[in-house]
């Protein structure tokens, strides 16, 4: 099953887990299914129209999905989807 990697600031919304197994064949389905299980996470990564929020970057393995097929990017069983917010401090 594809795995979704959860960044530190969002782990309070996934019971502290740093990765969550999901189902689906596209990035949108995989994230959507995690979001169904963890609604507070869904709210933070998707807007009301179901689009990814602009400050949320999603990677399939190590590739930015925006130059693949965005949420329609195909996901295989052993793929990893990562949500990676920008790190602001310094």
């Amino acid at each position: 099953m594809p795995v979704v990697r959860i960044p530190t600031p969002l782990r309070p919304h996934t019971d502290g887990q740093d990765s969550v197994e999901s189902t689906g064949t596209t990035v949108g389905e995989v994230l959507g299914n995690v979001g169904t299980k963890y609604p507070a996470l869904k709210e933070r990564i998707f807007d009301d129209a179901g689009e990814l929020r602009r400050f949320v970057n999603v990677y399939l393995n190590n590739e930015d999905i925006r130059y693949l097929d965005d949420l329609a990017t195909a996901v295989a069983a052993n793929d990893e989807v990562s949500i990676i917010p920008a790190v602001a401090g310094g």
């Binding site: 530190t8 600031p9 969002l10 933070r44 929020r53 602009r54 400050f55 949320v56 970057n57 930015d64 917010p85 920008a86 790190v87 602001a88 401090g89 310094g90």
Partner: peptide, 28 residues
């Protein structure tokens, strides 16, 4: 191109709320 919008508080913790290790700073 990469970070399209300024992330709101809660999405990116600050050094004051989440802390920061000196060695992490040195590495970056």
């Amino acid at each position: 191109c990469v970070v399209q919008d300024n992330p709101p508080p809660g999405m990116t913790p600050t050094c004051e709320t989440a802390g920061v290790l000196g060695p992490a700073v040195s590495v970056v």
